[in-house]
């Protein structure tokens, strides 16, 4: 099994590494770091790595990395299904799980490679511009970004397993991105507005700390988005990250919990992908 998975992963890397967009994405990541650092130092708003991540990088990353991850994943199965090459691949002594794992490892490598190279290169250049360069914090940022990208990449693969044609799969992919990257903060804002208007209108006890008044299910809503986990993780581990979250952070939120939840996302997406893919007709 291991041999087959690695053969497929190798093919995925060869097949995708030639794509021009991989180069483009890597350059975008590096350029992004440089641009944010340069503008931050000119305006003197960025004096350390924490500020670089919070005010400049993480807000853009939460939009950019999910869509890149999704775009790398959505094509993984449906692309081969539509072109017909999956027929040939599936006719060999490989299981559906071999194919899925091979694709996830191969394309996942490309995703991680582009993030580490792009932001890593940017980080090296940042070291010359930011006065208090803390590479530990920057490494956490890169690690968290890899996890974020990988979750959305697995989400893309999952979407890929549900379609027979590429065009509707693109539509679904964009739909997922819009919901998680754009609508979610709006949805949680509306929910919290409704909850708090109710609490303010009918106070049962004096509101001393706002977090005590939040019903626990609202945290579930808050955490049902990998981007929340990402920004909370950065806030918790670096101290200052751009936080679009309108729900205040309770005590039980921890960096470990966020990382754990991010891995849960990955495994759930992979499991759904496999569950679907093992049954589809090629």
């Amino acid at each position: 099994m291991k041999y087959m998975v690695l053969s497929i992963a190798k093919k995925e890397i060869l097949d995708n590494i030639r794509n021009a967009w991989l180069l483009v994405v890597t350059i975008i990541y590096t350029a992004l770091v440089l641009l944010v650092t340069y503008s931050g130092t000119i305006t003197k708003t960025i004096e350390n790595v924490g500020q670089l991540i919070s005010t400049g990088l993480s807000p853009i990353v939460t939009f950019l990395v999910p869509i890149i991850g999704l775009m790398l994943g959505y094509n993984a199965i449906v692309g081969e299904l539509e072109s017909g090459s999956l027929l040939l691949l599936g006719s060999h002594a490989v299981s559906r799980l071999d194919i899925l794992l091979g694709k996830i490892i191969g394309r996942g490598f490309i995703l991680i490679y582009s993030i580490v190279l792009g932001f890593g290169l940017g980080g090296i250049l940042v070291a010359f511009n930011v006065p208090n360069a803390d590479f530990g914090e920057y490494a956490i940022f890169i690690g968290a970004t890899v996890l974020l990208g990988f979750i959305f990449f697995c989400m893309g693969v999952m979407i890929s397993a549900f379609f027979k044609r590429r065009t509707p799969a693109i539509g679904a992919t964009l739909g997922f991105w819009v919901v998680f990257a754009i609508f979610w903060p709006i949805i949680t804002s509306i929910v919290i507005f409704l909850v708090f208007s109710d609490i303010v209108a009918n106070p049962t006890s004096p509101i001393t700390d706002i977090t005590y008044s939040i019903p626990s299910w609202l945290y579930a809503v808050d955490l049902f988005n990998p981007i929340t986990e990402y920004s909370r993780l950065l806030t918790l581990s670096i101290g200052s990250a751009a936080d679009f979250n309108v729900i205040p952070m309770p005590d039980f939120y921890s960096a470990e919990l966020m990382v754990g939840l991010m891995f849960v996302w990955i495994f759930v997406m992979m499991f759904i992908s496999w569950f679907r893919f093992r049954y589809i007709d090629i």
């Binding site: 995708n16 017909g84 027929l87």
Partner: peptide, 12 residues
């Protein structure tokens, strides 16, 4: 196996 509509990896 040789399928009716052969498709291989175009970038390779």
């Amino acid at each position: 196996y040789l399928p009716e509509r052969v498709a291989m990896y175009r970038n390779l």
